[in-house]
Write a protein that binds this DNA or RNA. Sequence first.
DNA 1: GTTGAGCGTT
Length: 264
Amino acid sequence: MSHFGRSGPPDIKDTYSLLVLNITFRTTADDLFPLFDKYGKVVDIFIPRDRKTGDSRGFAFVRYKYADEAQRAVERLDGRNVDGRDIMVQFAKYGPNAEPIQKGRIVEASPKTRGRSRSRSPRRYRNDYRGRSYKRSRSRSRDRYDRYDRDRYRSRERNYRRRSRSRSLTPDYDRRYGRGRYDDDYQRSRSRSFESVKFYAGSASPPRRSLSPRRPSPRRSESADESPVKRRERLPLSRSVSPRGHRLDSRSPSPYSDEVLCNL
DNA sequence: GTTGAGCGTT
């Protein structure tokens, strides 16, 4: 029950969180797991994503069960090249609820403290990033669009997203799987557990989205509502199963973005 | 079909 499923933070009570910076936007939790799991028991991996687009934001959180293992992972993996980029691994400084944590360990004393720090200030999302004058919307290209003709480019962007969503085959993957080894693999057997766990967690809704978003009900009202345009929008999604069969991220947020759902 | 300082979700 408390797995890397999409049911929120698992059991963060006695875990040690590592912040992994500078990963590629295509790197998934699956990619990180074998690396980090070599140094200890990885309890959870989470890759924050853009709310709207679902894209990776370029960093990840890896949670260890034991502090010494986390520490070792920092020493060994910080600066390591992953998918062509030198990642930075360090202990997280803030908890999932913006709590300061020490050495990656959440200091959350009482649930009262936790509730306080997040219940007030009803930010829409956490995109304000704690008011630390966070400049970015994560990319200059999107900044550009946001400033100028966002409305004009919106549909274009959507198409991009959708296509890149269902594509999922990049040189990165070739490289990674051609490599097939990590530096000291003293417990490579565990490399499978992550996928297994996630399959387990997603058993209700398998990663391979052979989805059935909404069966066109034989109702007259709906069929009348169906325009060819909408139909076209749905089709590419229905078959958007990646070549890898499963492309699981930490929590793949619904493959169908909200806008798509709204379209139906 | 991108981008690149940074701290997180059901």
